[in-house]
Amino acid sequence: MLIIDCPYCGPRDQLEFSNGGEAHVKRPDGSADIGDREWGEYVFIRANPKGIFYERWVHSHGCRKWFNCVRDTSTDEILKIYKIDEERPKLDSFKNNVKTPSGEPNLGSGNFTVKK
């Protein structure tokens, strides 16, 4: 289970938060003109990487504020938390634990939780 460091309230148990999926998703410009396929991609398709993932959380049972988070989905390690109006941190500022697209990290996945 995660301990999430709310930028407004400090570290709290994950149970107080709700996950809001991928962060930084932009509604396409000129939505009246774009085709069904492009619109469908905006509505239904979200990033789903194994590794560094930019996501949103909301402190539902606390201050009820939204914020962004960078988490490694291969280990669940939270790498950075930043406010919704702060700039998106660069991808290469984080270490990628997964060498191949579906590879396992040395430590942190269910199969290798205690491997040292």
């Binding site: 995660l2 709700s18 996501e55 989905t73 996945s109 269910g110 199969n111 939780t113």
Partner: peptide, 8 residues
């Protein structure tokens, strides 16, 4: 509730 590949 969140995306993860940790099998845990």
């Amino acid at each position: 509730s969140y995306n993860s590949f940790t099998q845990r």
